[in-house]
């Protein structure tokens, strides 16, 4: 189902969920949970948004049943650790490539996905100051390096 324009702010989280459907269903589940919560704050009034969010909720409930015996889904603290470890793994990979001066699409995507997953971490509660800084840095780096490569410049 097409994403209504009013919910554009969650499109990348939903895309990350789709990319992890098979690779890491726990990541997919929490990306969709974040998108659901954020989407309801963005717009759950207009009919097309409500229809989209109902479908997303159906998907979440189905995933919940399928993954029910997984502790990362059943226990919030385990889920939190799962997402945080995954986000930081992506961040460290991209940061290492950056420090080695290896600039490419994969490392840009890893910086950006790390920032999205740090958004997702907020379903478990307030982000730590460290994670807020990581998210800001990762999003800035992804944008900066993407623009450098687009303009044919070498990132510092």
């Amino acid at each position: 189902m097409a994403l209504p324009a009013q919910l554009r702010a969650i499109q990348h989280h939903l895309r990350t969920a789709a990319e992890h459907e098979k690779r890491d269903p726990v990541v997919a589940y929490y990306c969709r949970l974040y998108a659901m919560q954020a989407g309801m704050k963005l717009d759950s009034k207009t009919p097309e948004c409500r229809k989209f969010l109902v479908k997303l909720m159906d998907q979440l409930e189905t995933m919940k049943k399928e993954l029910g015996d997984n502790d990362s889904i059943g226990q919030e603290v385990v889920g939190n650790a799962h997402i945080e470890n995954y986000a930081l793994k992506m961040f460290l990979y991209a940061d290492n490539e950056d420090r080695q001066g290896r600039f490419h699409k994969n490392m840009i995507k890893s910086f950006y996905s790390a920032s999205l997953l740090l958004d997702v971490l907020s379903v478990f509660g307030e982000l730590s100051e460290e994670n807020i800084q990581h998210r800001k840095y990762a999003r800035w780096k992804a944008t900066y390096i993407h623009n450098c490569l687009k303009n044919g410049e070498t990132p510092e």
């Binding site: 949970l33 309801m40 409500r50 409930e61 059943g74 226990q75 919030e76």
Partner: peptide, 27 residues
């Protein structure tokens, strides 16, 4: 139709909120 539409909308919104709360409670 305006008021009916609004009450349907808010009923559906409430239902979504309840489903989300239930999903989270089971975590």
């Amino acid at each position: 139709t305006g008021s009916v539409g609004t009450s349907v909308a808010s009923a559906e919104q409430d239902e979504l909120s309840q489903r989300l709360a239930k999903l989270r409670d089971q975590m």
